[in-house]
Design a protein around this nucleic acid. Structure first.
Lengths: 118, 118, 118, 118
DNA sequence: GTGGTCTAGACCACG
DNA sequence: GTGGTCTAGACCACA
């Protein structure tokens, strides 16, 4: 995975894992890979990976049992909320961004449609 | 102006100024405020403002004449290119983001329309 | 039993067993459950339970006879000492803690009385 | 400062700083020492100190301005809440602990009074 | 083997 | 100078 140098790596990893959860790649209630494995998979230092996991735990997206591993939350509501939260953030950023540089409704829709057709 | 702590402030200022240019708040060819004034207006350190302006100059969005001040580019093509560049970036980030969390075309359009109605 | 994640589990189990001894739930001289049973009862790993018992034995609170089982010390003095030791630790931690955050004698007594009435 | 090896250092430092805030050693709204200074003062690694500060910020006890420093919250309610929270935790742990090893109200009060006289 | 904490030391963004 | 992130590597508690 390539990281964007303008954003902390641990945030980008959190985002990547959240995506895997909301798209079902990681299943609710199931164990995720060990921090060590994940660190290797993302080619980052163990500490960086631990930080990402710690923040995800604080957000209640995963929960950890010491000596055993970390598990995706089994609370489906949390996951749904996560998905709509993420999409709302994207939608708002996009719409506000476009309006901020002077685009009107029809133009925005036209550009989106064009992009979706690709 | 409130800054997002996850992104360098100078980038956020550059974005803000670019928006003012493409929306015509800042007029092509005209002089912009002094770096000192801008720093005060944005409530940031002078160094930060200087960096933002230096980057804008590197991107040829503004140009500086020593002892006189800085000016928005008078090249309308540069400004048009800037606008479509910014919108393309927004569109791509948005579409890729939504697809990345599992949304399909119709859903994306529906959410956009809902957001535009507000 | 819920464990506090900031303190080693084996210490919390030791404390729990000591409490049972000083309150007479576990009787002096009598046999206690097998480590295996205790591990299940507390829902902890066998190793953790073994560690707790090993430490209790080191403190001479219990003693083990190979092939037979573990027994609460029959020495009543040890048990009395244990009780006053535990209460002294509690009292000291409490008083020092309260004074450390700026509470005076009367306030401390007032809060204690209030808590005891519940 | 001597640290208790059974508890993470960063938690003990957080506690120490909270105490300084509720007792007024650190004044609401004022800047606290730099992380580097604090790390030296507590004789811990910079990272450990940063972790303590990050957690305090998450608890809204302090807030940080990048490149400038950290400041005690200016919200007096937060500080009052902190104080009563800390004292309630102490009182509850103590009372439950004493009752857990079989002490009655009068005995508890007697021991507390004795300890306070010292 | 698994997660948690700690140290040491580097580099960056910002003031 | 100040805080934030990252790497490297050690040690501990727990399963």
């Amino acid at each position: 995975m390539k990281f964007n140098p303008t954003l902390p790596i641990y945030l980008q990893i959190m985002d990547s894992i959240k995506k895997e959860i909301v798209t079902g790649v990681l299943v609710a209630g199931e164990r995720i890979e060990s921090v060590r494995n994940l660190a290797e998979k993302y080619s980052v230092n163990l500490n960086t990976m631990q930080r990402a996991c710690a923040e995800l735990e604080r957000e209640q997206v995963i929960h950890t049992q010491r000596g055993i591993g970390s598990f995706v939350t089994e609370n489906q509501e949390t996951i749904s909320a996560l998905k709509s939260e993420m999409s709302q953030a994207l939608v708002n950023d996009f719409v506000q961004g476009m309006q901020g540089i002077g685009y009107q409704q029809e133009e925005i829709l036209k550009l989106i449609k064009k992009a979706l057709e690709k």
